[in-house]
Every structure is written in C-alpha cells, then in structure tokens.
Computed example of a mutant assay.
Amino acid sequence: MKGLITFSICALLLAQPLIGLRLPSNFNFQTEYKIVSKSAIKLVAQAEKVGLDKCKLCVDFAGQALNQLLNIILQGGVVGGCSELCGILASKTSPAIGTVCNLLCDIVGVEEFIKIVQKADLDPIYYCELLTACPVNDAGDAKFTKFTATPASGPQGTFALDFEYESKNGTGTGEIALEVVTVDGIPLGDAFLHELQPAGTYTGEFQLKAEPDPDCDPTQGPCEQWLPGDYTVKIAICNGECGSKHPHSQIYDESSATFTITQ
C-alpha cells in the first residue's frame, strides 16, 4: 500500500504554527530556536481530511496555548470550572483558542484537564494523547527509503525536498522534523504533525524557499541570507515529539540530503 502524508492547517486556529520546535537532540544544533523565516519551509498540500480532525485540532491548540495555560494554573487564579479557565486563556490569546479550550476541557473536566496540562510539560502531542484526542501506537516503525533535494545545484530560489518512507507496523502520532545546516551557521528548521498511519509506503514533499526573507527583522534575530555554498538538510520521523522524553516518544529514523546554492 502506498499513500500520501496528509498535513492540514486548522482554520479555527487561524493557521498558526503546528508545533513549538523541539527537534531531535542528537541533531547537531547550536541552540534552541524557532524557524528563522516564517515562509522558508512549507509542506506541499496533498490531501484534506473530511470532517473534524480531533488530533490535529488538539495539537494546533496545544502548540499555541500550553505555555499560557501553565502560567495561568501556576498563578493559582483558577477556582472555577472549564469556562473560567478557558475564559482567562481567551483573554490572553483569542476567542477561537478559548473555544477549543472549552471543548477539550469538557471532555475530562477541569481538575483532570489541569493535571494533564501540568503533566504534559509543554509537549503538545503527549498532551493530546493524555486527553485521548490523538491515538497511540508504541509498536510503530518507519524507515526512510528516499530523501532528495531538487535541484541539486542552482541559484537562490525554491528547492523541493521529496521523501518516502516505509512502515511495517504503522506509525504512532508524531512529527516530521527538518533542520537546514546553513553556510553562515544560522539555525533553521521546523517540525510538522505526522498523524498515525497504517503499515505501508508513504511519500511527501516540502518546499524550501532558499532566498532572503524581505520581512525578516534583524532586530528580532538573525536573518538567513542563503549565501553561495553547500547546504545539508536533515529530516527525522518520530513517534511523539522528536526528542521528547515522555512516553510514546521515539525517533524512528533520520536521513539527510544536500544541495548547493551557486549565486
């Protein structure tokens, strides 16, 4: 069986980043970071799920709200139920996030919801597994059979990153993470939710926009200039969040590809 990896953005959460970046610890990162250019790495849209994707909705929410929720809880200001907790969250974020908070909190009740927020320790996938919004498969596996960058050499512009992997036992809920080793040493990467899949062979494609971002503000952090030279792209597919020490987490496989910017 061969299929396409499905990634989608939840409109309710206004297309915010899927997951706070925490890539595999055995990658040679120089520092913890978030993606330097918001538009540098994009997943090529391939398919949309019909109806509500509860796992995706939950992970999108957790990536944006867990830190705020934890701060609200630690401040000790929550004495009521889900409505009060999620109302405070909505006032600090947005009404849409507050609505999703209420939906998820009502599943388990406010006391258990608070315990799960604290136990998850800012890990969105583990949080959603504790809420049973995302399924678990600890017997899963995945092995990359292809990872290429196209073109292999060329001027600044868009490079296609194509991957294929095989799974004998299916995969758990996890993520696919990317890191670009740049010529000037500026860290660049991102991570994307990878939902549970049955056994089979799967393909997907990312597009890397290898050209300076005109909207990058150097006062907020370094701006990648995509200088001429050789670049390495590392990819990892994981059960759970890549690099997480929580249950239901492991790195299935890693691979890398190279390309050269000529000018």
Rank of each mutant, 00 (worst) to 15 (best):
A40L: 08
G98I: 05
G63T: 03
F29D: 10
E211G: 07
T219M: 12
G154L: 13
V181G: 01
S39D: 13
N137W: 05
G229D: 03
S153Y: 01
K143V: 08
S255N: 14
F259K: 09
L12P: 03
D138C: 02
G172C: 05
V183R: 01
L21Y: 13
A191V: 10
L43M: 14
Y33T: 11
T201N: 06
L74Y: 12
I251A: 08
A90V: 09
E195D: 10
F147R: 06
E164M: 06
E195F: 01
L89A: 07
I125W: 07
E254N: 11
N26Q: 13
A152H: 02
A15C: 15
G189Q: 07
G3D: 08
Q197N: 11
T219S: 15
I235Q: 07
D106T: 12
S83K: 09
A120E: 03
P135H: 02
D141P: 00
P17F: 02
V50C: 06
S94E: 11
S255C: 04
T171Q: 00
L43K: 13
I35W: 04
V181A: 11
E205R: 15
E111P: 00
D230A: 12
K245Y: 07
S39M: 08
G77V: 11
S37T: 06
E175P: 00
N102D: 05
G172P: 02
S94W: 03
T99P: 01
A191D: 11
G3P: 05
A90P: 07
E112G: 04
G3K: 09
F7V: 09
V44D: 04
P198R: 07
D230C: 04
A210V: 00
H248T: 00
F61K: 06
K54H: 12
L52F: 13
L130N: 06
S153P: 00
V183A: 04
W226Q: 00
N67G: 14
P247V: 08
Q75G: 14
T203N: 14
V181R: 08
E84F: 05
L196M: 15
L74T: 07
L52E: 12
D184S: 15
E205V: 10
P222E: 14
F29S: 14
L18P: 10
I88L: 14
L23F: 02
K38H: 13
P212T: 02
S94F: 07
P135V: 00
T262S: 09
K143Q: 10
A62D: 05
A236F: 02
